[in-house]
Design a protein around this nucleic acid. Structure first.
Lengths: 207, 207
DNA sequence: ATATTTATTTACCGATTGGTATTTAAATAT
DNA sequence: ATATTTAAATACCAATCGGTAAATAAATAT
């Protein structure tokens, strides 16, 4: 007897919730929060509205759950990046992974956290604020990592972790806009390399 | 008799078209193309829908006219920047002006060309493509300027105008996202300075 | 077999979307 | 004065928005 197969009462759900969330994620990613209509969502998920609402709450809840799936799946690399051994390696992996990810062909271009609700109507205010928090969250992860790098002697004493982190976050967000505009992976890699050369010139410590 | 005061037939328009465009611009800038509703537009302009349609065509036309006013007004500095005497000065003015402009207090944060239609529903596809063209347009202005700088001996022979231009455009677009997220002018200036220090390190020519 | 529980389906809701037809008002030309 | 021209105001349109009530279907518990 395998675990967790206790039969549940009631009519069984005919769709897989995780698969449905992946499809919803793709739409929110492409269209943004307001640009994704219930009609397109239900059509793509292959379920009708009452099923969607019973399973996920409402549009905003569905977005938040899609977003959780986004952060634990496609962009988990941001969490891994801070484990690189040096500040330079962190910056390198961050920018190179971003160039790759933002232009990958198996999902929408650009970063959902950057673009899903930048300018929008009032109805998206909650989501807009939530995404702002997420943006600061990954930037702050970089701040902490660069503060550690200073202690490690891995960055010069006059280095400013906050500025360095914001510089990388800003490049990432700009690269996201570029990717959505049609800029290729190779072009983004050139930008990343430009930024990284400069990084080395400035922080004359080891790679 | 002053020029151009020939009396026109018909009931005179009660509102000033340029003032109305400025108000429409502020809304599109803040809300984006889709996020700006006809209701909010007419209410803010102080006119009703038939007047708006008679004067400007439709929502998309109104957006395009607002956008023209944006490019000839608030962001005209991008056109001026390429007249700076050296490549470095161009980069400097571009980034410093951007930090100032994107966080100014007399208009919405961020750049309309970057954010007014990044992710959106199908109804905004035309506007989305138009804004992509505008983004490439100002990037291309920088490309031309840096090609000239190479000829002038103002940039090293191995400099890549396209990459440098895209690097600046990417920073600008990221700074726009940052400004919309609440980042201050001073924080953006720190990023600009970071990028400019690196610029000097890399292109070891004069300021 | 019946009751209970949960999901799906169909049909609908009020509000809002961008956009207009019709009427009324204000100016000039004759 | 009257006709003509243009704009403003009221009232309306079909389509779509996010969201739901009510009925039906499919599973398990007793």
């Amino acid at each position: 007897m395998s675990i967790n197969v206790k039969k549940l009462r009631g009519r069984p759900r005919v769709f897989d919730m995780d698969e449905a969330l992946d499809k919803a994620l793709a739409i929110f990613w492409e269209r943004g929060y307001e640009g994704a209509s219930l009609a397109e969502l239900t059509e793509t998920l292959g379920i009708n509205k009452p099923s969607l609402y019973a399973a996920f709450g409402n549009k905003e809840e569905l977005f938040k759950k899609s977003l959780s799936r986004y952060t634990s799946g496609p962009v988990a690399f941001v969490r891994d990046v801070i484990n690189e051994p040096t500040a330079y390696k962190v910056a390198e992996r961050f920018l190179l992974n971003a160039a790759e990810f933002l232009t990958a062909k198996d999902h929408p271009k650009g970063c959902m956290i950057v673009q899903a609700a930048l300018s929008s109507g009032e109805s998206a205010d909650m989501v807009k604020d939530l995404l702002i928090q997420y943006r600061y969250a990954y930037e702050h992860q970089l701040v902490l990592r660069f503060e550690k790098a200073k202690i490690d002697g891995d960055l010069p004493d006059d280095a400013k972790p906050k500025s360095l982190a914001k510089y990388l976050a800003t490049l990432h967000q700009g690269m996201s806009v570029q990717a959505t505009s049609g800029t290729s992976k190779d072009e983004l890699l050139e930008i990343a390399e430009l930024a990284l050369e400069n990084w080395q010139n400035k922080n004359k410590l080891s790679k």
